[in-house]
């Protein structure tokens, strides 16, 4: 390295507006970048991370429906649960086929019609939330068996089930299904028990 001559150092001050602007911009960018870099977000404890990501990991929500108020409410609830992390809905209508018949035997047209109408209504709720929804009519001997089939076929991460326990009345189909499902859940199960009117 050469020694610096003092005479060289005697420089004239030339202040051009563009140069001043570049100098100021340089300092501002430097300051902003360093500030951003040094301000780290808080770390997430393991328990919190587990809770947050186990919910975020839910990508497919299976919603068994009937043409009843509480199952439509379950669809709305599932939409709100899945909307934040773009989960998909699998809307299923389970037709319980009596044991005397084969699973693929033809069904009365009114059952098929009711199923389609219920699924269309449910799909409209999903569309309102701009959530992708798949619909399917599933035949099974029992409703809980049908739900298990759907969870397996669609790789469901969660089942949202609406039900209503009416006072002084025998348990409805859904109540029986819930009981069977909770005994051996195929995945995470959320029960929305709507109070009796």
């Amino acid at each position: 390295m050469h020694g610096t001559n003092v005479s060289e150092a005697a420089s004239v001050v030339v202040s051009h507006p563009l140069g001043v602007a570049i100098a100021i911009l340089f300092i501002i960018i430097l300051g902003v970048v360093l500030f951003w870099m040094l301000h780290l977000p808080q770390p997430m404890p393991q328990e919190v991370a587990r809770a947050v990501y186990s919910v975020e990991a839910i990508r497919k929500i299976v919603v068994p429906i009937l043409d009843l108020y509480y199952s439509e409410r379950a669809v709305e609830l599932a939409c709100r649960l899945g909307k934040l992390h773009n989960a998909e809905l699998v809307l299923i209508y389970i037709v319980e086929v009596p044991r005397l018949l084969t699973l693929d035997s033809p069904l009365p047209s009114n059952i098929e019609g009711r199923a389609k109408m219920a699924l269309e209504g449910a799909k409209r709720i999903a569309e309102r939330h701009a959530i992708k929804a798949t619909t399917d009519i599933i035949r099974a001997r029992e409703a809980n068996e049908g739900i298990r089939k759907a969870v397996q076929a669609y790789h469901g991460d969660m089942v949202v089930l609406g039900m209503q326990l009416a006072k002084d009345r025998p348990p409805t189909l859904f109540a029986r299904t819930v009981e069977a499902l909770l005994r051996q859940p195929p995945c995470e199960v959320v029960i929305d028990s709507v109070p009796a009117a």
Binding site: S11, V13, V14, S15, H16, L18, G19, V20, I22, A23, I24, F26, I27
Partner: peptide
């Protein structure tokens, strides 16, 4: 910064 502000000639 000193270079741009006080000595630079575009």
């Amino acid at each position: 910064v000193i270079g741009f502000a006080f000595a630079w000639r575009p």
